[in-house]
Write a protein that binds this DNA or RNA. Sequence first.
DNA 1: CCTTTTGCGTACCGTACGGTACGGTTCTGC
DNA 2: GCAGAACCGTACCGTACGGTACGCAAAAGG
Lengths: 219, 219
Amino acid sequence: MRADATDMPEFSPRQNAVLEQALRLLVEGGEKALTTSGLARAANCSKESLYKWFGDREGLLAAMIAHQASKVRTFERSGERLTADLLRDHLELFARDLLEVLAGDVSLALNRLAIGQATREGSKLGKLLLEHGRRQIDRRAMALIDQGKRAGLLRFDNADAAYHTLYGLIVSDLHVRMLLGEPGLKDNARQAERAVASFLTLHGTQKQSADVLGVSAGR
Amino acid sequence: MRADATDMPEFSPRQNAVLEQALRLLVEGGEKALTTSGLARAANCSKESLYKWFGDREGLLAAMIAHQASKVRTFERSGERLTADLLRDHLELFARDLLEVLAGDVSLALNRLAIGQATREGSKLGKLLLEHGRRQIDRRAMALIDQGKRAGLLRFDNADAAYHTLYGLIVSDLHVRMLLGEPGLKDNARQAERAVASFLTLHGTQKQSADVLGVSAGR
DNA sequence: CCTTTTGCGTACCGTACGGTACGGTTCTGC
DNA sequence: GCAGAACCGTACCGTACGGTACGCAAAAGG
């Protein structure tokens, strides 16, 4: 879904280039590397222009989040008749995409930035990040499991709870670990398989083979 | 397990009081509120003493993590014969404790601090936080599910994978959301129940009633 | 062709930080 | 009771940040 040009200001190509440099600096050196002087130098623009375009530093950070979110568009692939195998495939694709997004350099850097700013009373940046970065992926997953339920392939009372279960099975504590600087998984696909298998065991309507779950061998 | 006095320096009462003030400042105002001058003022000590005791700012942060970890000791309650109900109770208690710890002000503030410092190449603080803060709780859970397996109440091939499943079911994306400034759960106990019920459905050897899972109603 | 706007580069300002130095005071060991 | 260490309060230093001001080049527009 394309953002409405009215409520969500898009930026000029020049400004987008500057925001791209800002993201690069942030990814490479963390928050302390993202200074107005440094950005002006890296992007070949003046500090005055930065303040004219983005207001202040927080405005710049918000613009960076909006810019990054505008790049990650998720396609709504709906309509086709769901089978059990198809549902599993789509769930695994979602899981792999989710893991890949969360492990991305820019995603990690922006999350670190927003978390570093946050306090007990909440954070403007945190809200922005959750809304812009998460809504897309949440919608995709919710649409998928809702479709699965309508097709009689999934059963649950609360779609939100079911989605959170799926999310937890996929991500576990991996996101926080990566935010803290640990390396990601060696094999996202395997983790995706295991998570979806578990999810289908919990909320699927058909018997699961469970061989990927590692519980069939008995020992 | 008490830390060995040789490799892990404990601090004097005076230093612990200073570290306590440092944690208070960090919790109340985030990283930017934790300045050497501010801490010296709040703790009625001199900046010179701070540098003498902790070396530099990073040393202070590390000391804060060690200090906080030394307060959260988990008791190893082992030995008793496990039944299915007892296992479920212990798992739910673990889940509630985990949620409570993660939602704690000090835990959130320290995680925000370490994450804010982290870069792509990793973070000294992040490593410290994972080792000190996580090892305790990990050991407790691993011991518990291992005991459950030996008692024939749980089945899994990989204890680590099973634990990560349990962790994901309990926490989902709640930790990151709280780190970003969102409020916690209204009812940790209910979440703990649901997570443990799911976990037992996946890895338990007995049929689960599943009424708390919200999948029995059929609709 | 001339004017107006836009934006670059640089210099500048106030502030606040991490870290150090020093004089005076309290605590400690003998 | 006294010498020495530990420590407090404060002043100080260099630096680097966010944000502003200005001079000048280049593009836009009529």
